[in-house]
Nucleic acid binder design. Structure first.
Length: 330
DNA sequence: TGCTAAATAT
DNA sequence: AATATTTAGC
């Protein structure tokens, strides 16, 4: 209703995302008579939903229902996209590729339109790139992870990238197979039920899969004991954050993400215990923070996006000074 | 000795 | 997995 104006895109094909329920979106879509425009709108919603899914995946344990709702919405959107696309093809007898070529042309024009970017500005970054890219058969962009990628458990054979990227498969065969989505969805839904966890337990998201820690530069052994150098600790905290925070990450998961040779579960467990005790004494917002926060252990270190280890690693040059600060606490 | 980090036990 | 206890380094 409020968004009906946004659907007056006719042939301009501008991004049309306006938050609304799927039911309302479908209702609004039913008033659009041009199938191409419907697909464009659906595509915007699909991209936007994937972005949002990416955003909350770090909070998946706290927001499992949000994950499910988003994934259901995505499934619905993609099914709808498929059926419209199929309808188009059977009606016109024209393969989708023709359609894609037309869209691509439009999108290239759009890319120069600042107002288009504005619409996608609410979260700052990559949103604007998603829409124009959809219609390109741009296989280069391996960074662009979508829906399917972060439901892969790390030890499962990932679906080949070709199939797992919505954009690419759209370009190649018109649309991602809903079968793949369903498979992934059911894997997602059952992921946490057999391992003792109450809720969903997605072991790895797309960031975890991409996490490639640089080799440690500082010694991690002292006598016979594991020495938690600030650099090692930084990696520990990164892993912690990737896995959803101090309250939910388990020692085994942390160890796996850290990828430090010789590191044992017990050592991580011990360190986690110590770290939790330490954080417990601090204002509680520290302990809950997931992404950006000053490490209470090394307060002068400010952890940035866990994706960029250099943020935390490099700043550890003066570690011991902060360690001594701990003893001044009580 | 006391304090803490790390290891080990429950 | 969480907590408690022990060991050991400074």
């Amino acid at each position: 209703m409020a968004s009906s104006s946004s659907l007056e895109l006719n042939l301009s094909l501008k991004p049309s995302y306006v938050p609304k329920t799927i039911a309302n979106l479908l209702k609004d879509l039913s008033h659009v008579d041009n199938a191409s425009d419907k697909l464009a709108v659906l595509n915007d919603y699909i991209n936007q939903h994937e972005e949002e899914l990416n955003s909350i995946v770090a909070f998946k344990r706290q927001l499992p229902q949000c994950m499910l709702l988003l994934m259901e919405a995505l499934g619905t959107l993609k099914d709808e996209f498929m059926s419209i696309k199929n309808g188009m093809e059977s009606e016109t007898g024209r393969p989708l590729m023709d359609f894609l070529a037309i869209k691509r042309k439009h999108c290239e024009e759009e890319q120069t339109d600042i107002s288009v970017a504005k619409k996608y500005d609410c979260k700052g970054k990559s949103l604007m790139k998603s829409s124009p890219q959809l219609w390109n058969s741009n296989c280069e962009n391996k960074e662009e992870k979508t829906f399917i990628d972060f439901i892969q458990a790390p030890n499962q054979n990932p679906i080949p990238f070709k199939e797992s990227t919505f954009n690419l498969s759209l370009a190649e065969k018109g649309c991602i197979s809903t079968e793949i989505i369903r498979k992934s969805y059911s894997r997602f839904a059952s992921a946490g039920t057999n391992n003792g966890h109450s809720g969903l337990n997605l072991r790895a998201d797309n960031r975890t899969l991409n996490y490639h820690p640089r080799p440690l530069t500082q010694p991690i052994w002292k006598n016979n004991r594991r020495s938690w150098s600030p650099e090692l600790h930084a990696r520990f905290v990164e892993a912690l954050n990737l896995l959803g925070g101090i309250g939910v990450a388990t020692p085994k998961q942390i160890k796996e993400v850290m990828q430090v040779e010789g590191l044992t579960n017990d050592q991580v467990k011990s360190h986690l215990q110590k770290y939790r005790l330490h954080c417990r004494r601090l204002p509680e917002n520290y302990a809950k923070c997931l992404v950006k926060f000053p490490d209470p252990w090394h307060p002068q270190i400010y952890y940035g996006d866990p994706l960029s280890p250099e943020d935390s690693d490099e700043n550890n040059s003066n570690p011991e000074g902060s360690l001594s600060k701990k003893s001044s606490r009580t």
